[in-house]
Design a binder for these strands. Structure first.
Length: 591
RNA sequence: GCCCCCGUAGCUCAGUGGAUAGAGCAUCCCCCUCCUAAGGGGAGGGUCACACGUUCGAUUCGUGUCGGGGGCGCCA
């Protein structure tokens, strides 16, 4: 009764390897075992006979017959059949599955944890949105995907570090600082034209109000002195309608940034720092509420300040991969698979964002990560060859970096696309989305698609509390079990010795098989960087539970049967909880 | 022009080098004196965009065509 649970797949692989060694010692075919789609084809199916047939110049069914004859006896195998063109279908004894619930209860949250990664250090960098305003729904998907992926990798046995790259050094931050100052000036009665390409959001006014409340008119400058040397600022209408207004607007904005730095001096850093702290804090807060946490917030500015960019470029130069042209410094990216060479230092002496990214990625590997996963928006795909090229040029293996591209999420309400315009500050923020549909539905819906698939986020469906909403469907399965166990009133520990041999109903066996799949799902999700596999698995698991719930009463008179069934559902609850936790979704006991 | 993603049921999407391709929704029918009906069962619905190749076997891999989405700054 209490003999340990054996991993059926590993056990069968051993048997097949032995059989293969007997009948075809020279064959180097790898043994593959698949779960057949149909129950009539057994618990596991092996196709090696068909792969061997050609080399052996024999009929695959004959090869299969020889293999079956050579299989060592096993107390777990009920029978073996040869089917179709040469499949070997293995039917296991129910006892194999019946041992599983006790095993799951004994292992608790560790059931499904794997040693695949062997403790290898992996960094997952995700979100990394510019701290220039609230996170929007697009960032939300990267956050949910990255967090779930990191959880899955950790559970699969990798030593995972979660990192957010803070773009605190670029022009976008300058634009935010100036936007804040201009709004502040409005409060002092000085109305400088607000550029259409500056940050329009209400949060900028909020920051301006706070600063004005703290320091009154201390940072006021007159319109005349600010606009000296600043080209005309296009209006919002011109910006949308006239093609050349875009260029003019960029020039005006740059001139305003220069004016702010000149007129404010040290105080410019105050605006810059204030806006950065405020927005980054808001972002961190938003993500924390979303259940998304980071081990490191890595500052882009620190790369500049520590001289790491110089060092990275020197290393590239020493290897002969940089050259000067048109006053700029270029990286010979085309020699490393990129379509053209890329500027790393502009004519004006400033480093490009790419230069910082080279230094950042070099730094990642210098910190000892064996593998790095970057989660990027799909619009950055063209950026991959140059970063990988830079790694190769630095003498690092570019395959140690995996870029996971996350496609955009489009919101639908009442069957209509919810329009978004970042420029006008008209977009749905992640916070608004979370408030509208709840964190659980939010996290789950975001990972319900393959990451490289466009996501249609149906707000109405996410809020619906019914069978068509998968997150409630799964949570409901968990709550139903909790409710049954509460009605029973015993302790989970009392179920460890239940006579699981009593579990013979087809729906019980189906659920047992499903529970056995969980570790394989984790392995697949970690291997393919695909946490959505966990979400789909949980849907299937919940469906099996709901089916059993309808077909079998758990709290029956027959005590051994009752305990066996409670053991099964308690194990199911465990796996549901583990899976939901990996996805950052709660597992409620009551709904 | 070049690059990336996608094309599977009416809709939204899973899935796989294998044996009769799945789920939810939608449509139609059925199931609560019983542990939560936020549940379950059943029916209908498919040339896995198309063509050619590789293979014992292709919806899956490769090439091409067609169709949809996205990207191609000395921006970040």
């Amino acid at each position: 009764m209490n003999s340990p649970y054996i991993e059926p797949k590993q056990h069968l692989l051993d048997l097949f390897r032995q059989a293969l060694a007997r009948i075809a010692p020279a064959a180097d075919a790898g043994i593959e075992l698949d779960r057949p789609k149909q129950a009539a084809h057994g618990d596991w199916a092996c196709n090696v006979a068909m792969q061997l047939a050609r080399g052996l110049k024999r009929n695959p069914r004959e090869v299969a017959a020889d293999l079956v004859a050579a299989l060592p006896a096993s107390e777990w195998v009920d029978r073996v059949e040869i089917a179709g063109p040469g499949f070997i279908n293995v039917f296991l004894k129910p006892a194999v599955w019946q041992r599983l619930p006790a095993h799951i209860l004994a292992r608790g949250a560790e059931y499904g944890r794997l040693g695949l990664g062997r403790g290898e250090r992996v960094q997952v960098e995700f979100v990394s949105a510019n701290p220039t305003g609230p996170l929007h729904v697009g960032h939300g998907r990267g956050a949910a995907y990255g967090a779930s992926l990191a959880n899955v990798l950790a559970y699969a046995g990798y030593d995972v570090t979660r990192e957010y790259y803070v773009n605190d050094a670029g022009r976008q931050m300058d634009i935010l600082a100036v936007s804040t100052w201009l709004r502040y000036l409005e409060l002092t009665g000085e109305h400088v034209p607000f550029p259409p390409n500056a940050y329009q959001g209400e949060y900028v006014r909020t920051m301006a109000k706070s600063i004005h409340g703290l320091h009154a008119d201390r940072y006021k400058r007159t319109l005349a002195e600010i606009m000296t040397g600043v080209p005309p600022v296009p209006s919002a209408e011109e910006y949308v309608e006239k093609p050349d207004a875009k260029v003019a607007a960029e020039a005006a904005l740059d001139a305003l940034i220069a004016a702010a730095k000149r007129l404010l001096g040290q105080d410019y850093d105050y605006f810059h720092g204030y806006a950065l702290e405020e927005q980054l804090g808001d972002c961190r807060n938003d993500l924390t509420e979303f259940g998304v946490c980071f081990d490191h917030w890595f500052s882009e500015r620190s790369l500049h300040e520590a001289g790491l960019i110089d060092r990275a470029l020197e290393r590239l130069a020493a290897r002969g991969h940089l050259y000067e042209q048109d006053g700029a410094t270029w990286f010979r990216a085309s020699a490393f698979g990129d379509e053209k060479d890329r500027v790393v230092r502009r004519e004006n002496g400033q480093y490009t964002y790419f230069a910082a990214d080279i230094a950042y990625h070099l730094n990642k590997f210098e910190r000892g990560f064996a593998r790095v996963v970057d989660v990027w928006g799909a619009d950055h795909h063209g950026y991959i060859p140059r970063v990988k090229g830079a790694l190769a040029a630095l003498g690092l293996d570019p395959d140690r970096l995996t870029v996971a591209l996350v496609q955009f999420a489009v919101l639908y309400r009442n069957g209509q696309k919810v329009s978004m315009s970042t420029r006008a500050g008209e977009y749905v923020t992640l916070r608004e989305l979370r408030q509208e549909v709840g964190n659980d539905a939010c996290r789950f819906f975001y990972v319900l698609r393959k990451s490289d698939q466009h996501l249609d986020f149906d707000l109405d469906l996410a809020k619906r509390q019914s069978t068509d909403n998968p997150v409630y469907y799964i949570q409901y399965a968990h709550a139903r079990i909790a409710s049954v166990l509460a009605a029973w009133g015993g302790l989970e520990g009392d179920l460890l010795d239940a006579d699981a041999g009593r579990l013979t109903h087809p729906d019980e066996l189906a659920l047992l098989r499903r529970l056995a799949e969980f570790p394989e799902v984790i392995a697949a999700a970690a291997g393919d960087l695909a946490p959505h596999l966990v979400a789909y698995y949980l849907k299937d698991l919940a469906a099996d539970l709901h089916g059993l719930y309808t077909s079998c009463q758990f709290l029956v008179e027959d005590e051994t049967l009752r305990l066996a069934r409670l053991q099964l559902v308690a194990a199911t609850r465990r796996v549901l909880r583990t899976g939901l936790t990996l996805l950052g979704v709660s597992a409620p006991d009551k709904m």
